[in-house]
Design a protein around this nucleic acid. Structure first.
Length: 444
RNA sequence: GUGGGUGUAGCUCAGUUGGCAGAGCACCAGGUUGUGGCCCUGGUGGCCGCGGGUUCAAGUCCCGUCACUCACCCCA
């Protein structure tokens, strides 16, 4: 049997319900905040990612799916979306038509890592990016949007971690000081951190190795070295969040793995997925657009891990003992009436037509098609099986009604429409069953 | 890339010192000649992940391999 390749997976119909509900909830929210959807390619020239994410990051060094195409160009399956959105922004000169652009996109990303819970080689992200706004209010607003999204999904316990990395003015002096500090602690650092010292010293700050954490306990913090502008910027972000009752923690170890971030960075963390704690993350990247050949433009954005989010939502639904099978009962108090929970209701047939006999099967097919076209969810069965087994099937499908159409009923011009819940039965005639069913369904 | 755990029916899992491959759920049929859910009876369904080895005999022991999984690393 041919199977999916490692780290790739199928999202089956039973799971898609949650995916679609999250997607609808997110795009509604983003559009209410003025974001427009953009769809970008899944493949780009390798150079785009190498230059934006950073040549020495793990992603670029060893996690990308890169291969030559027929003419020898190096192509890469995108490991993240921001680089492509920035490329599109530059390529179509989007800043010219409107100096402020708010964009979101949803789609798969590819990284060749060892799979584990909440981490796949093809994984999905929802991305939001804002171009052309320097003000810290937009930093706060992005975190507010994430907070609101998680609230709407019933995940109010998730909390934001935020930090500021400084800008091209204040970061170099900080890096110098950090390097000096690291030199003094060299013998206590892990191999990885020693490597990081050369490549990207900031990254030592979020090392998880206990010895490193201990050694770096008193390491200088970016927060103490921010220039006045960066300091003011960060203060406003924090003040606004506080005023809007968005809970957050200042986390000076929040450095993030992509080189392009400056000033505000943030992550939304969870404990629900073992070691994979980040559900969403993002930050400001004011230098990136120019770096990639565009005009000097402010930029900030975030990515939400769709697979992880869907997993947490699924856990929440199961944990809350929410009954979604027939969409009728939900026990979860705070969100049972929410738009999101309504989106989770599965679609079940309004009618299941049970034909008994050859003539009946032909008519059942005709009626089913007509009802489907009329927008009434209808199923039938062509196997010629017994009434009892088809009743069972109707029950399994959770059909609201069955229409029993045996050769006998057709002969007598009296079809039986049975409500599966109340067991009420109505007779309808064979001349225009579609219209009769429409009126009966509206009445009940 | 490194380390641990697990691979048996569609699903969840038993399988003793090596001795006929099992259960529950699901599916199909019947009990009820044309009315679902509950119950009862019967049935379909297996390269025991794959390849080698040891043995009279391997689901079981050994080696390899692949996949899944958890953790490290990294990140969404």
């Amino acid at each position: 049997m041919i199977q999916t390749i490692r780290g790739f997976r199928d999202i089956l119909p039973e799971d898609i319900v949650i995916w679609q509900a999250i997607e609808k909830t997110a795009s509604k929210l983003f559009e209410d905040f003025g974001f427009k959807e953009i769809r970008i390619p899944i493949m780009e020239k390798t150079e785009l990612f190498a230059r934006s994410i950073g040549e020495t990051t793990d992603i670029v060094e060893k996690e990308m799916y890169t291969f030559p195409d027929r003419k020898g160009d190096k192509l890469t399956l995108r490991p993240e979306a921001t680089a492509s959105v920035v490329r599109a922004y530059i390529q179509h000169n989007m800043g010219a038509s409107d100096s402020v652009q708010k964009l979101y996109t949803i789609g798969p990303m590819f990284r060749r890592e060892r799979p584990q819970k909440g981490r796949y080689r093809q994984f999905y992200q929802i991305n939001a990016e804002v171009f052309g706004i320097e003000s810290p209010y937009i930093d706060a607003q992005l975190i507010l949007i994430l907070n609101e999204l998680f609230k709407r999904l019933g995940l109010s316990e998730l909390k934001a971690h935020i930090n500021s990395l400084g800008c091209k003015e204040c970061r170099p002096t900080f890096q110098k000081e950090l390097l000096g500090f690291l030199e003094g602690k060299k013998e206590h650092l892990c191999e990885n951190c020693l490597r990081r010292m050369d490549k990207n010293p900031l990254r030592t700050l979020d090392c998880k190795v206990p010895e490193c954490r201990e050694a770096l306990k008193d390491a200088p913090s970016t927060l103490n070295h921010l220039c006045d502008k960066c300091k003011d910027h960060f203060e406003i972000v924090k003040n606004v969040l506080t005023e809007q009752n968005v809970e957050f923690t200042v986390d000076k170890t929040l450095v993030r793995g992509l080189d392009y971030y400056s000033r505000t960075t943030f992550e939304i963390l969870t404990t629900a997925l073992g070691a994979q704690s980040a559900v969403a993350g993002g930050g400001r990247y004011d230098a990136l657009i120019k770096e990639l050949g565009g005009p000097e433009t402010y930029g900030i954005g975030f990515a939400i891990g769709f697979d992880r989010l869907a997993e947490i939502v699924a856990q929440m639904i199961n944990g809350e003992d929410v009954e979604v099978k027939d969409g009728s009962s939900t026990t979860s108090e705070f969100n049972s009436e929410s738009d999101f929970m309504n989106l989770l209701s599965p679609k079940v047939p309004d009618i299941f037509i049970i034909p008994l006999g050859e003539k009946a099967i032909r008519l059942a097919y005709m009626w089913t098609s007509a009802l489907n076209i009329a927008g009434i969810r209808t199923e039938t069965d062509y196997s010629g099986r017994s009434l009892k087994s088809l009743m069972k099937r109707a029950d399994k499908l959770n059909a609201a009604n069955v229409l029993i159409a045996g050769d006998k009923e057709i002969e007598d011009n009296a079809l039986v429409l049975r409500n599966m819940k109340t067991k009420e039965q109505f007779f309808i005639t064979t001349d225009n069953p579609v219209e009769q069913i429409e009126t009966l369904l509206n009445r009940v």
